[in-house]
Amino acid sequence: MPEWQRSTLELIVEELRRPVKIDESFDRRVMVHVRRTYARRRRRGIAGVLGAASRITHHPAWAAALAAGIVAIAAMGVARSRQRPATAAGSHEPVQFVLVAPTARSVAVVGDFNDWGLNDSALIATNHEGVWSVTAPVPTGVHRYAYVVNGKDWVADPSAPRSAGDDFGMPSSVLVVEESTK
């Protein structure tokens, strides 16, 4: 390559690599959109789960499973809106717990329905490319539960209402399990 051509290319690249500054109001504009999206998802009770649903569409075998998780959460919302009394009937219903935690090494579910994981009763979730999921029968009624990430970090479910009084000083969420109508 002739010297003149090489240096011309270098000069072009040097010029194009100069930083371009964007006004800081740009950040505010983006965050307005982000907060609106977040608020909309919270109102619909699916914050933190909707993204996972679309992700799973790339993996057909998991689409149904995750869809089931969203349905389960939707069913909880219906139960709350009817203000059903919290009854603890004897029957159990299958509930799928889903947590999006791409960097987690392990995720388990603990709640009052499994003695908060005592005696190895924690439900161990399975990782599907950052979407952790486990399905288990849970007695009908109102329950409190949480996720234990990496065996030590106790987190509430971002897609469910927080428990009024966090258990043992730890964050927890509320789960309403209705008896199946079938």
């Binding site: 983006v30 959109h33 982000v34 999206t37 909707l50 993204g51 679309s54 992700r55 791409p102 979407v131």
Partner: peptide, 12 residues
């Protein structure tokens, strides 16, 4: 940026 936020869970 807003699209990335909406589908952040898909960031593998």
């Amino acid at each position: 940026f807003t699209r990335a936020y909406r589908s952040l869970a898909r960031c593998e």
